[in-house]
Design a protein around this nucleic acid. Sequence first.
DNA 1: ATAATTTATGAAAACGTTTGCAAAACTATT
DNA 2: AATAGTTTTGCAAACGTTTTCATAAATTAT
Lengths: 339, 339
Amino acid sequence: MAQKKSANSDIFDVARAAGVSISTVSRVLNHPNLVKPDTRKRIEDAIKATGYIRNRAAQMMHGRRSGTIGLVVPTIDHTIFAELIQVFSEAVEEQGFSLILATHGYDLEREYQLLRKLLEHRVDGVALIGFEHLDETYGVLESQNTPAVTMWNYASDTRIPCVGASNISAGAMAAEHLMDLGHKEIALIISSAGGNDRAADRLHGARKAMKNRGITPIAEVSTQYSVSAAKRDCLSVLETQKPTAILCGNDVIGIGAMYAAARIGLSVPKDVSIMGIGDFKGSDETEPALSTVRLPAREIGQRAAKTLGRLIAGQTDVPATWQCDVRLLPRGSTAKHEL
Amino acid sequence: MAQKKSANSDIFDVARAAGVSISTVSRVLNHPNLVKPDTRKRIEDAIKATGYIRNRAAQMMHGRRSGTIGLVVPTIDHTIFAELIQVFSEAVEEQGFSLILATHGYDLEREYQLLRKLLEHRVDGVALIGFEHLDETYGVLESQNTPAVTMWNYASDTRIPCVGASNISAGAMAAEHLMDLGHKEIALIISSAGGNDRAADRLHGARKAMKNRGITPIAEVSTQYSVSAAKRDCLSVLETQKPTAILCGNDVIGIGAMYAAARIGLSVPKDVSIMGIGDFKGSDETEPALSTVRLPAREIGQRAAKTLGRLIAGQTDVPATWQCDVRLLPRGSTAKHEL
DNA sequence: ATAATTTATGAAAACGTTTGCAAAACTATT
DNA sequence: AATAGTTTTGCAAACGTTTTCATAAATTAT
């Protein structure tokens, strides 16, 4: 029976119950083979009887790592982050760490404050999203020399190790696809959250690819990350600008765009092609299925967790940057432009 | 400048840098008004100079709470959990706690192990999803007397405090709606993850409501939580059973059902009505918009965080159960059954 | 100027572990 | 039966804080 004492039982309670010293109890927990099987059994029983649970905080005082990893994200409830967090969380747990998660809502000052709190907890490592952070954020990670990774974006020269895909390539790839299909009247609809360098990169990539072929977007509209906002904003673009194709900054916007087209009686892809970026869960199930560029969330999350684990273990041969490939997924929502 | 010493600086480093004792440094941090403005300034400068960050583990040794709350969920990347976690996380951060998040993938033994790990970290409180947990899970929470809440499900007699909605009511409400519209040939499609009492409750509620009116489901099919699986399974139901209405265990299945209907040329809601449960993000944006029963994720998350905060603060007047209302949202995907 | 307050600081104990070292209890060897 | 070696155990220090209590310094009142 677990005891009902008001305070939680500690190693002394166990020692008392087993009639040994606390050293021996500690040894059962940490180096079981150093203690006589007989005594060990007695102590293990005492542990059960007292309901003793080790205190990480006290262990930490001895230089044991905290066994926690901090993850700071803009938000959880964007499909794509949810997927990434899920994978990262699993990978981190598998390595025996607990995950401390915090959300800053695209507020970089807040991100810094949350990071400081994580550091008070002496997290063994930290993962952040993207490269856009306060200088203080980078600074504190360096001065506390806490292992850190950045997920999602890729760049070859980074202040902290990164695992990600190039949003610039993704944007470019999406634009190329539309242009390859013969589209010239292309509208760009991107999401606008501040502190979000992903959207900016994709836009940038798309613009550049188009410029290379001498094509100018007939519209650049920013909208919110939500199907309804995207639907509303695409509606007006479709009505006023009559694009033959819409390049959407992410799949959620892409889905909004498809509904907008349906609403005003345009058929996708016959009357208008719609291109997403991301390959979110469900994007391949729409009718027609959404053409998009896959950002490999699973691979990124797993790789980042592995990298962080190695950094924490003090390994030195850890690649500082890791690029995961984006991939074009042409599906039903895009088609050749008919003259 | 933050110092680059190999080990992180501690309170002694600060004391040395400021030429005072560690007691005074500690006082600056905890009771600033007890120290001479002059000295305080000097110490604050030293803190900046050394890059000192308080060590929560050491504070804990003095009886300070850990400032963490544990949340164990089946998974993050189901829309509805993502929403719940997001809200809970915000509410918990607002109260000054950090959130330790763990996912068990519907494995209750794993849930128990994760919980134990959280308790090693001496989380101040714990939140779980639903009522289906190992006996050991309940036991350890009680024996460690750790404040805990259960989110999502509601019941009036619970072993630990709960904040949730009645999935039984939700199931019943969805069934009532279809029957009110004159449907008698109703198929039930629910998701089947083990360790998931939500789905079971909804099914149960729906069955009971139907039985009350003497109607028997013409089919009961279980599927996975994914648009594609649901689409596939609904396809066969639609073809073989010819229901006039499908009651789906959640909105994701509902969306799969709509695609399935579209695929075989059935018009929603004219040929078949489709009813979801949940009101996930985006459910009101489909074409036609999905009729559903709203499960108030935001309200639940906020309320649960508040309840847990109070429990941790030792307040005694905290309601042990809190029911959030489910609400019928009739939209375009359901209509009167035409004979 | 001295005594009586008040304010500011420091010394040391406590929190719950782990571990190096030393002592005690066995075992094996002569 | 005594010695050497091995295994098992306990003592005490260390980890980084906070806080109580005591003392020193500054202020105020005489």
